[in-house]
Every structure is written in structure tokens, then in C-alpha cells.
Design a protein around this nucleic acid. Sequence first.
DNA 1: CCTCATTGTTGCAATGTTTCGAAACAATGT
DNA 2: ACATTGTTTCGAAACATTGCAACAATGAGG
Lengths: 109, 109
Amino acid sequence: MEDTLRRKYELRAELFKALAHPMRLHLLELLRDRTWCVCELAAAAGIDKSVASKHLSQLKAVGLIADERRGTLVEYRLEAPCVLEMAACAEAAAARSLRERLGGAEALA
Amino acid sequence: MEDTLRRKYELRAELFKALAHPMRLHLLELLRDRTWCVCELAAAAGIDKSVASKHLSQLKAVGLIADERRGTLVEYRLEAPCVLEMAACAEAAAARSLRERLGGAEALA
DNA sequence: CCTCATTGTTGCAATGTTTCGAAACAATGT
DNA sequence: ACATTGTTTCGAAACATTGCAACAATGAGG
């Protein structure tokens, strides 16, 4: 029972860890509306294709996205739509907390 | 505009990073129903008070929890309820993806 | 007022993890 | 064969986590 609980939190943490990088959030956002191949994503995000590939494989490892080979390309698509709502909720919470922390004055449109 | 976007993803990532540790998820779950002082949390989670304090300060830094001094104790309480829904969604997504990854056979009650 | 016990936080050093870019490698289609 | 696209490997740098010890803050009792 204790082990089950620990495992539960480990699984959750793995998923959050996959989301815990600005570039991966950017890639997820790009994948919101359509599938993209790695080279498109790398170009759009302004990073090396090897870096993009690694970020994508992390997202895939926790089931947030899926890939499919199409000829010489590998197309990625969003698997878990709820992650975008989570991201929005996260953003709202972060903005709110930041406003409170900084006294409500600046930043955060 | 580009900067704004980057900042947005950085803020989101900071929040997910705070959630990306099993112990912090455990602490959040403990805080679900009532306030706890640091020593209670440390005892319940089986960790050193200094470690608990550091985890809690990370959660507080992104606005997920808040603290209040009561005498010699410092009580923490959950600030962002939506984080628990997020955690549940995360767990479901992780469980689903794990099932798919492992072929549906084992684990995950 | 002063000392003491209790509770939290911070500094530090050791250990482990993550990220990055370049280069090597693999897979596919022409 | 060759060009294109993705993935893996490697080392270096940055970052995160831990436990202990030192420190700070609060309240109780003499």
C-alpha cells in the first residue's frame, strides 16, 4: 500500500517533469492544431534537431504525444488534449502567484 | 512579442517543475484537507525537516501553497485547488500511457 | 530579563540528474 | 550511391536533491 502510493506519486512526477521545460511546452503548443515533423518543429522553435528529438522523445515517453513515420519524416501529434488545459491552468496560477509575489504592479498581460 | 511568449513558457515550466517531484506531490496531497505545520509534514512524509522546508518553499515560490506563522509553528495551506485536479488528470494520463506502453498487461490498479 | 526547548530556515558539500551541441549513426526514398 | 530526416552517443556545464550542522525566531518558565 505504501509502495503503491509512492509509485503513484512517482508516475505523476514523471509526467510533470516532462512538462517542466519551456521548450517542451512550446513544442506541445505547436502540436495543438496539427501534426508536425521533427524538422519543422526544430525550425519553428529555433533549436537543433537533435535537441528537438530528445524533447519529443521525453514527451512521448509519458504518453503526451505519439509519433508516426511517414517516409523519411516522423510526424508527431498531441495525444493527451487535457495537457493543454493543464498548461492554461498552470499559467493562470503562475500569473496570479507572480502578481501577488511582486505586489501586483508590473508584467503579465 | 517573442519575449512575451518565451516568458509565458518559462512561467509555466517553473510551475510544472515545482510539481515534478514525488515528495512535493505527496506534501500537496497532505495539504488537501487542512493546514499542516512543517514538522507534521516531515513526520508524515518520513523526511528531514530541512528537506520538507525546502520542498515547501519551492511550492510556495510558485504560489501553490501559502504559509502563516502561528507561534513557534509555521502552518502551510493549499492555495491553488486546481493543482489537485491537474494531478489527477496527470495520473490518469500517465496510467493510460503506461498501460499502452507496456501492452496493457500489468500494474496500475 | 535571561535561558531554554521547540520549530523552521539556510549554508554547505556530496551526489545525482538534465540539458546542450556536435558528431556519429540509422532509416528511408530517389 | 546519395540526400534527407531522425535518433543516439559523448562530454561539459548547469541544476537539483539530500542530510547535517549552524543559525534564527518564537514562546514558556524561572
